[in-house]
Nucleic acid binder design. Sequence first.
DNA 1: TTGTAGGCGTTATCAT
DNA 2: ATGATAACGCCTACAA
Lengths: 334, 334
Amino acid sequence: MVTIKDVAREAGVSVATVSRVWNEAAFVSPDTRQRVAGVAARLGYSPHGAARSLITRTTHAIGVLLPDLYGEFFSEIIRGIDHTAQRHGYHILVSSSHDSKDESEAALRSMRGRVDGMIIMSPDLEAHRTLHALQDSFPVVLLNGGADSKAFDTITIENHEGACKMVRHLVKRGHRRIAMIGGPERNYDAAERLRGYESALREGGIAHDASLVMKGNFSELSGHSAARALLALDLRPTAIFAANDSMAIGALSALREHGLRVPEDIAIAGFDDIPMARFMNPPLSTVHVDISKLGELATTLFLSSLQEGNHSRQQLQLSTTLVLRSSSGGAVLS
Amino acid sequence: MVTIKDVAREAGVSVATVSRVWNEAAFVSPDTRQRVAGVAARLGYSPHGAARSLITRTTHAIGVLLPDLYGEFFSEIIRGIDHTAQRHGYHILVSSSHDSKDESEAALRSMRGRVDGMIIMSPDLEAHRTLHALQDSFPVVLLNGGADSKAFDTITIENHEGACKMVRHLVKRGHRRIAMIGGPERNYDAAERLRGYESALREGGIAHDASLVMKGNFSELSGHSAARALLALDLRPTAIFAANDSMAIGALSALREHGLRVPEDIAIAGFDDIPMARFMNPPLSTVHVDISKLGELATTLFLSSLQEGNHSRQQLQLSTTLVLRSSSGGAVLS
DNA sequence: TTGTAGGCGTTATCAT
DNA sequence: ATGATAACGCCTACAA
């Protein structure tokens, strides 16, 4: 490996000078600058990151802790984070599948000295307590962890209002028996979307019927199963609201298998507006979320909290918009 | 930040002893071991990664360079890599969206001293030349970069044979006018899938008709547009093979909009077998690829090349299987 | 069994 | 404008 010493020797200068040239700091005569730059390029030199961060006390890397996410959501959020990070000269150290508190803690520890802070999307509402032990100088942005912890910078999706909007729409179309396919047990987004569903029903003066609320896990298959269970009910729902698009698509498939027409026999709606949604048969009504924006916001927030050491914590919320396609009988294509 | 010195002082021993306790090396009396471990835990000590890797010459991190991928493919491949890496105590430093050679080079340079090697999925068939300049001691695994470069460990998908299998199936079902929706221009997978299509046609004694080959970019929308273009043809195809599932789904949607039945009027098939595929209307015939396995293989290969410094380069290929659902009319009894 | 000291590659602080 | 040298936090001979 070619180090700063090699370049210095070859160019006939001291290591200090090479460092200065590389960092474009201080004053170096154009002459030597040129010579050093030339040698560096010829030798293919680039500074050793670890060594550098040891003295500068900064790694230019962000740790990203994610739960076991699937599909579109996972990729879009990473894309959003990475794009923004790259634009600011930062790398991202990703660690996925931390579904338990212990795993998260281990990952967190093992990243010490490798990252300047972390963006954490914790599935576990409890896990945050651990973080309180962290140095104050170690910035942490919480993604979808619930805004309860005012001690951190957090970003959440406008889940409750988004779900409300959709269910209100279904009510407005005359539905009274509206079923819900919920998400994973301890998932914050899922819980909020369920709350939104309940709020809208109450608002519409519709009695809450527990038999119409099914459990899912955000996968297509779970949506499919849940829909089948709903169809087996004595009194079938006339509309189904799924906590995400994947489950809505699974449900759509189950209805078709039962020879039911959507939306004539049963209306369907999802949440997220993944790219696929508009290409479904029929096109899926859903609540649009700009997921990569979520990652972008998180990164921006992270970087600003990194700069102003004593910046006051912020709680941001990403808004959602209703997208009505034909699966709910609503307006066509947006 | 609590360093090894703090622990040493607090425990009344030298830093060397703390180091030994931490690395469970050498002989330390059970007594002091206990005391040191206790203090370390109490102080929340964990070694500074950068400092450590400076002396051990190893970072326990893998650099992952990815092109601008979307959806399922992106997430699954990262999941596969990360899972395997984590199991072996490695972190992954992800950098996405490197569509040009220069970007890739920059990313590569900026990771020096932060990773022990790289897993690279280059969209650009040219970009590899840069890599030749790399030290021999810097392991690189190429993902889907074409197996032309025997100088590297490479892993590719069995694209050609997979596409062949699918088109052969369509031919067997009696189709003669089979259209293809191709992928991005310089994409290796896309090119190979197109070659497979052509091979199977030739095999079946079907003349190649250039007007039946459409260009796409792996997105649902491009599949949708391509299908519309195909429907505008004087002599419509009776079957459409898309280079990936997303485009097949877009095409499916276009056919429905034209009031055509699938597979009765036109058969459709895709490639990848993303989870959605089986929930389409009708369920999509496709070529199954275990994407997370691809990432897993890459990581395993990487780690083994890291251990045996002078290990001979390997070229692996991930096999595919035909999944016949109703969009192609189902299996043929032979 | 434990401690001392040198060095990993870099930047920062002094001199010069 | 440039050079010598001391850190940064850690590991590892070598010494005790």
